[in-house]
Amino acid sequence: MDALIEKLKGQIIEQLNLAEVKPEEINPDSPLFGDGLGLDSIDALELIVLLEKHYGIKIEDPKDGKTIFQSLRTMAEYIKANGKS
């Protein structure tokens, strides 16, 4: 799980162009949205693309994103449960 979380940190920083954020600054249990990383509605949609592109997971209803993308850990757990790789 920890390895997956570390991998996700890198992928999120790259996909969402968070150039001023360092991986160690992201707490796996902090909320991804809201104040934390300053992510917005476009980032939420990009995370859906990220899951499909890197993990072959298709989220049909973007409303599910709210629970999946609560934190890095919830995201990693979702990938573990649903991912192909």
Binding site: N17, I42, L45, E46, V49
Partner: peptide, 9 residues
């Protein structure tokens, strides 16, 4: 096929 909303906008 991965259209990106962050590009499209």
């Amino acid at each position: 096929y991965f259209p990106s909303p962050a590009v499209f906008v």
